[in-house]
């Protein structure tokens, strides 16, 4: 069995186990056996086995959407991180670091404040779609800006890319701060949640709202693996290998920012997942995007499920924002890559 197949298998099995355990955790603890029985009932198995109505209710209304959300957001962030790194031709291009998430969150915040003002409430599915679209467009604008700024002569410059990211993060942060002045209390609470990143807002509605925005990139991006590999040779070289460089760039940026936008729209800024996940995958199976892309979606989903379990249990009953956990794990890795590649980053 090849390393790659083994990795896919391990990830999928781990994903099922982690999800089942995660569904049991929380204020009401549900034994893993009960979780499995309730889930089996949904596909018609164990129909006669009695289960606690309370367990069933908690699982259906609270836990399932939360776990589903974690899976979707994690898959989106993982695969988008890999895709963005492919386009920027650099393993340090993380959507959070280079301002893509901040762009998404700025648009989301604008829409929260405006939408509530215009339609008096943001509770229906349509509202969430609007939010996801807004975040998507914000992410897209930020990505194109950083890309254009960091590129000279068809090559993208790492230092400029990271500095442009700092600038866009700062700008989006300042504008978000400005908007908080015209927001009311309820909106402020929503906005704070955005800045830290959390899966606490998960409902079936939010899950449904982002599902298409996550599934489209997760299904389509793995087909761009070969193109992204060629891209890592350079834009000119990729064109010489017969790629329509501009078209591919546009498609990848649209798909990646669609994933990031959807994730940010419902869970705020959860940074460093897009860095941690592809990096870990590459340690195991190398850098061929044909496999790193789908594997990143799986590991992203797994990592976020695990991180969510952690942040719900460490100081229970209080919940830590999930962004805190991913940043705690991600920053040391980022610094490690910086130090390891210090020589190569000198311009």
């Amino acid at each position: 069995m090849s390393k790659k197949v083994l990795l896919y298998l391990v990830l999928i099995i781990a994903l099922f186990i982690a999800s089942a355990f995660s569904m049991g955790l929380g204020a009401v603890k549900i034994p893993i056996k009960e979780v499995l029985i309730i889930l089996s009932k949904k596909i018609g198995l164990f129909a006669d086995t009695p289960v606690s109505a309370q367990y069933e209710g908690v699982l259906n209304i609270v836990r399932l959407p939360r776990v589903a959300m974690g899976l979707l957001v994690g898959a989106a962030l993982g695969i988008s991180g890999t895709a963005v790194q492919g386009i920027f031709r650099n393993p340090l291009a993380e959507p959070g670091l280079i301002g893509i998430s901040a762009g998404a969150s700025l648009m989301a915040v604008i829409i929260i404040v405006l939408e509530v003002a215009l339609f008096a409430g943001l509770s229906n599915l349509l509202g969430y779609y609007l939010l996801a679209f807004g975040a998507f467009s914000g992410a897209g604008i930020a990505a194109m800006l950083v890309y254009q700024i960091s590129r000279t002569d068809g090559k993208s410059n790492v230092a400029t890319m990271l500095l442009a990211g700092i600038a866009i993060n700062a700008l989006a942060g300042a504008l978000t701060g400005l908007i908080t002045y015209i927001a009311d209390d309820q909106q402020l609470r929503n906005i704070t949640f955005w800045m830290l990143g959390s899966l606490a807002g998960a409902t079936w509605e939010t899950v449904l709202a982002i599902a298409p925005f996550v599934l489209i990139p997760v299904l389509l991006l793995p087909r761009m693996g070969k193109a992204l590999n060629a891209f890592s040779l350079g834009e000119v070289q990729a064109a010489q290998l017969g790629l329509k460089v501009n078209q591919i760039k546009r498609n990848v940026v649209v798909l990646a920012t669609m994933g990031v936008g959807a994730a940010v729209a419902v869970s705020g800024i959860i940074s460093f997942v897009g860095l941690l996940v592809p990096h870990t995958i590459r340690l195991f199976i190398g850098v061929d995007n044909k496999h790193v892309l789908p594997a990143s979606a799986l590991l992203g989903a797994l990592m976020l499920t695990l991180a969510d379990m952690l942040c719900r249990t460490i100081i229970a009953p209080i919940e830590l924002p999930i962004g805190v956990i991913t940043a705690l794990l991600g920053t040391p890795l980022f610094l490690y890559i910086l130090i390891k590649d210090k020589k190569k980053l000198v311009l």
Binding site: R89, N229, S232, G234, V236, Q240, D288, K344
Partner: peptide, 13 residues
Amino acid sequence: GVLNQQNIVNMAF
């Protein structure tokens, strides 16, 4: 086929 003067690769292929 074209062999360019500069070829910068940052990924560990």
